[in-house]
Each structure stands twice: as C-alpha cells, then as structure tokens.
Computed example of a mutant assay.
Amino acid sequence: MRRLTTFPRLTEAEFKTACTAFHNRFLQHQDSQQEWTSVDPLQSFNTRYLRITRPLQPNARDTPKSDDAEQESEVEESEDEEALPYTPAPAPEALINYDIILSPTYCVPTLYIHILDPLHRFPPTLDTLYQHLVPSPYASQTRDVGVLGGITITDHPISNKPVFFIHPCRTAEVMEASASGRDLEPEAYLMLWIGAMGKCVGLDVPPALALASSKTENKRWGETRMILVVN
C-alpha cells in the first residue's frame, strides 16, 4: 500500500483509501468486538466520509430512581390485591454517530458527533457534551481548548443539523507528534488519528481492531527488514 505524500495531511485519494481499508478491517473483525455498531463509508454529492456508530452508554443519572421510591412503589402494589404486575418497556437505545470528513481547508480528517435518540433526550448542548460524551480525564482539556483545538457546536456540512465538532486547526501538529517519525500508510494514519482525536469524545478503537492493525504493521515491518537484509 502506498505511503502518504503530504503527511501530516491527507489528499482526497488517500482519505478514500483509508476509509475503505478501515471499513474492510471492521467487517473482518466486527464479531470480535462489541464497542462499535457499524463502520460505514458514505457519500453525499461529492463528499465522501466515514461514519462510526456506537451505542450511547447513559449515566446512572439519566434514569434516576431511588431505593425509597422503589420500596414505596412495591408497598403500593402490595396493598392493591387486584393490581396487575407492571413491567415498564425499556427505553429506546440512543446511538452516537461519529462522522469523519476530510477538511478541504486543513486537509486533515475532522470529526462531527451527533447523538441519534428517538426520545430526544440528548440535545446538542454543552451539558450533553460533558455529561455523556467527554470522559472525565479530558473535561478540563476540552474546556481549555488545549492541543486538540477545542470542541464546539456547529452545523453538520451535509445534514445542516447542529452537531458537536472538533476543530481541525491543530490536527496536523498533533498527527506529526503522534507519528513519532513513522512512515504511515493511509489506514494507519486514520487509526492513529482516531486514537489521538477521538478519545476526548469517547471514540476509542476497539482492542480487536487495534490488535489486528498492530499485527499487520509488525508483519509489514518484518517484510521490509527482510528486503533490506537481502539487498
């Protein structure tokens, strides 16, 4: 597979190659992981992008229910001999869509995050962002803008709906530091980018996919060393 020509940036062709390879990797190993629901390469008009979907794991405070309230409910039901057993229907599952789109200005992947919820429990507000998307260790970093460029609310470039957005102004700098001098291929770039930029909003590469990627890179490095030794 060809190497990147404009690292730490990507061309459109390299971004397409990365998305296709990453999608194929997910299809090969999706049964070995439970973190992600799907990985889909999509296109709208001339815009190609990759959508990663995972379930939203709600915090306990999303469905508050105290022990006292449960006991009181049990007492009321026991006092009414004719009361029928009641099992509340489970609330519909909410999903998080992570859309990865190549920025035409910065020539790096950008991340747009949208919570898909039939009950509209998670509006695109800063409260939702810090309660349900940003892990605690990254909260202060995102609030202070930091090396990731900050998380804002903007309109999705395709749907025009308000979504969360990681600004790409410093992505090239982050990628260059993260690569540590390695010569990356498109898919390896995308894997590294997700690891560097996605953690602050709960997007982590499942271990099964990361392990498969590591084995592939080690195999290629071994083949390269063998060629050098033979020559």
Rank of each mutant, 00 (worst) to 15 (best):
C169A: 15
Q33N: 04
M175R: 12
Y130H: 14
M226D: 15
D183N: 08
D67W: 13
P92V: 02
Y49G: 06
I96V: 13
A83I: 10
T53D: 00
S180N: 06
A83N: 08
A188S: 15
L4N: 09
K199W: 08
I153T: 12
A83F: 08
T152D: 11
S38D: 15
R143D: 11
L228E: 12
T110Y: 02
C200S: 08
D67H: 11
T152A: 14
T63S: 13
A212S: 03
E173S: 15
F7S: 03
T6M: 10
F15G: 01
T63C: 11
V145E: 13
D155R: 09
D31F: 08
K161C: 00
Q33T: 09
A139L: 07
H114M: 02
S214T: 10
T110G: 06
R3H: 12
S213G: 05
P55T: 00
E76S: 10
A89R: 01
N59G: 15
S32L: 07
T87P: 04
L203C: 05
D204S: 12
V39W: 02
N46S: 14
Y49K: 02
L126I: 13
P88C: 01
L56A: 09
V39C: 13
F122D: 03
G222P: 01
R220L: 08
S140T: 11
R225E: 09
I153D: 03
E77G: 08
H132A: 14
H167F: 12
S213M: 01
D40A: 12
L10Y: 09
A139Q: 09
